[in-house]
Amino acid sequence: MGRHSWCSHLGDGLCLADEPVVCEVGAISALSERELPEVPARLSVTARTTGRAVAARDLTVARRRQRVDIGVLPAGTYDLLISAGADTAPLSDVFVVAGPDGRDAADATDGHP
């Protein structure tokens, strides 16, 4: 069986460490809205340097984008994954949270002033 649904994502690629990370998630499908009004999905965020999960949300994704609050994260680079059932294509993205000096955690440890 092929995939007939996928998720869409709208979010900033660069966030600040003292502000909440938010994004918008919506569902797109080859099926009619009557046949598939919503897609159950899971949004997860993993710290790229440690591989540790820092946030996870179970979502019911509608056709219209909905706001998802991931929360305040420390400086670093993060992988975002939105996954659903076998008939829904997963979506992944990368974003950076910059500290007060404008660098992420990896930049802060590279030995440069």
Rank of each mutant, 00 (worst) to 15 (best):
T49I: 11
A47T: 01
G51A: 10
R103N: 05
S8K: 05
R42T: 15
C15I: 10
L36W: 04
R3L: 11
A89N: 06
L36I: 04
A98M: 09
V21R: 09
V97L: 11
D104H: 15
E38K: 07
G99Y: 06
S29D: 01
L91M: 05
A105N: 03
V25H: 00
D69Y: 13
A86T: 15
R67L: 12
G102R: 05
R52T: 06
D12A: 15
R52F: 00
A89H: 11
R64G: 09
H112I: 04
S29F: 00
A106R: 09
L16G: 08
A62S: 15
T46C: 03
P74I: 00
S29P: 02
A89Q: 15
R103W: 06
S5I: 02
A30R: 13
S83H: 08
A98W: 05
L59P: 06
L10I: 15
A105G: 05
D69L: 15
L59E: 03
P113Q: 10
A55L: 05
T49F: 07
T109N: 03
I28V: 14
D79S: 02
T109D: 08
V94E: 13
G102M: 10
A98L: 13
A62N: 09
C7V: 11
L43I: 02
L80T: 03
I70Y: 03
V21F: 14
H112K: 08
A17D: 07
L10N: 15
L16W: 10
A89M: 15
V25E: 03
E33P: 07
D104V: 11
G51M: 07
V68Y: 00
A98E: 09
L73R: 03
S32H: 10
S92D: 12
T50G: 06
S8L: 06
A84W: 03
V68K: 05
D101Q: 00
P74L: 01
R48V: 10
P37L: 05
L81T: 04
D101L: 04
C15W: 14
D107E: 13
V96G: 04
A84Y: 05
V54I: 05
V21C: 13
G13A: 08
S44Y: 06
L43T: 04
D58V: 09
D101G: 06
R64P: 01
P74G: 09
D104G: 07
L81F: 07
A105F: 02
D12E: 14
V22Y: 05
A89D: 12
R48Y: 02
D101C: 03
